[in-house]
Amino acid sequence: MAMIEINNLTKDYGKGRGIFDINLSVEKGEVFGFAGINGAGKTTTIRNLMGFIKPDSGSATIDGLDATKKSAQIKQKVAYVPGEINFPGNNSGEVFLKRQIEMLGHGSWERCQEICDELQLDATANIKSMSKGMKQKTALAAAFAADSDILIMDEPTTGLDPLMRDTFIKLVEEQKALGKTIFMSSHIFKEMEETCDHVAMIKDGKIISRIDMNKIRYNPDKLFTIAFQDNESFQHFTSLSYDLAEVKPDKNQVTVKVNDQKINELMNDLQHYPVKFFKEIKQTFEDYFNQTFKEEA
């Protein structure tokens, strides 16, 4: 069952700015990532989902509700972290967080306090005097404590240090274990690689790729860099029928691409050569992202 459905969504601001014929489907209980460089269209897509702006054409639904026509009902169902945080009023973070829970009608102040502790947030501080990082933590505490079935987050770790990003990943994993549906944009590759089931990449307002993250985490095609002790061994090995990703004759070094099913064959072949070193090159989502954008460009 799709909790978030986007069909041919278009919002054209002119001069190539906006989003164009976006199609996405996010299943119940899925963590879905939305990646792209600044200005690619991530925030415009999310603002359409939340009903803050109306599309020129196409549609978006959340739990079967039209994002434009039923935005008030959607806001009761969705825990939302905006890309730019601007809190209302001049109260403490604690007052704001309690009001959020009261307005939604679900969530727990006790759980909110636990999240504040995990994020090392002093919620008694006045929200107007908070740093960018503290405001981000407050928004995250409100979202994770809401106990909403759906979380939509736009660059949720902006302003957080690496330690707090690890805490964020832990909180996302906890929500996923509870069966929550999460849609988030991010430019931090690590948090997407560790939490997302699928990631869609957007460029110039158009979806250019969608990847099952298991293919990144458990890629059967491995890369190995091998350096030989002499040129003769290097030359002989490179004459074999391996897929050579990179060759460095001056260093007697080669990088080969090998499927899991042929790794034993590679090991057997290497027994016949004096090898200086042998190292696997881990392929990451960042590698895939950069390669996809390079090919698109």
Results as ranks from 00 to 15, higher is better:
178 L>R: 15
201 M>V: 15
155 E>S: 09
126 N>A: 04
172 V>L: 08
230 D>R: 10
256 V>N: 06
63 D>F: 07
213 M>G: 05
231 N>M: 11
192 M>W: 07
56 D>F: 06
116 C>H: 01
34 F>W: 13
295 E>G: 02
244 L>G: 01
212 D>G: 04
62 I>W: 06
177 A>T: 09
20 F>I: 14
90 N>S: 14
293 F>V: 15
161 D>Y: 13
191 E>I: 10
185 S>P: 11
195 T>K: 10
205 G>N: 14
69 K>D: 10
77 K>M: 10
159 G>I: 07
55 P>H: 09
41 G>M: 08
113 Q>Y: 05
115 I>C: 00
269 D>M: 02
59 S>C: 09
136 Q>V: 08
92 S>P: 02
222 K>D: 04
79 A>S: 09
45 T>K: 09
290 N>S: 11
138 T>D: 00
40 A>Y: 12
206 K>H: 15
247 V>N: 05
18 G>I: 14
17 R>A: 13
44 T>M: 05
33 G>L: 12
182 I>F: 07
195 T>N: 13
283 Q>R: 15
239 S>M: 10
291 Q>W: 08
275 V>P: 02
274 P>C: 00
77 K>N: 06
178 L>A: 13
94 E>I: 02
83 G>P: 13
209 S>R: 15
285 F>V: 11
160 L>Q: 03
27 E>D: 12
122 D>G: 02
44 T>A: 08
32 F>A: 05
171 L>N: 00
241 S>A: 12
47 R>V: 04
160 L>D: 03
109 W>L: 05
226 I>M: 02
54 K>V: 09
136 Q>C: 08
121 L>V: 02
99 R>P: 00
72 A>N: 07
248 K>V: 13
287 D>P: 13
163 L>D: 14
169 I>D: 05
153 M>N: 05
292 T>D: 05
138 T>E: 02
211 I>T: 13
4 I>S: 08
4 I>A: 06
146 A>F: 03
202 I>H: 11
189 F>W: 13
247 V>L: 13
191 E>A: 12
13 Y>V: 11
94 E>G: 00
124 T>H: 08
259 N>C: 06
78 V>R: 04
39 G>Q: 12
149 D>Q: 12
22 I>G: 14
135 K>T: 01
65 L>G: 02
160 L>W: 10
20 F>K: 12
54 K>R: 11
102 E>H: 01
226 I>N: 06
131 S>L: 05
166 D>R: 15
21 D>V: 11
273 Y>A: 01
288 Y>T: 09
273 Y>M: 01
78 V>M: 04
40 A>M: 11
63 D>K: 12
123 A>H: 04
89 G>M: 03
2 A>F: 14
14 G>R: 12
278 F>G: 02
156 P>S: 02
160 L>R: 08
277 F>H: 07
26 V>C: 08
141 A>Q: 01
133 G>Q: 07
200 A>E: 08
259 N>V: 06
132 K>D: 07
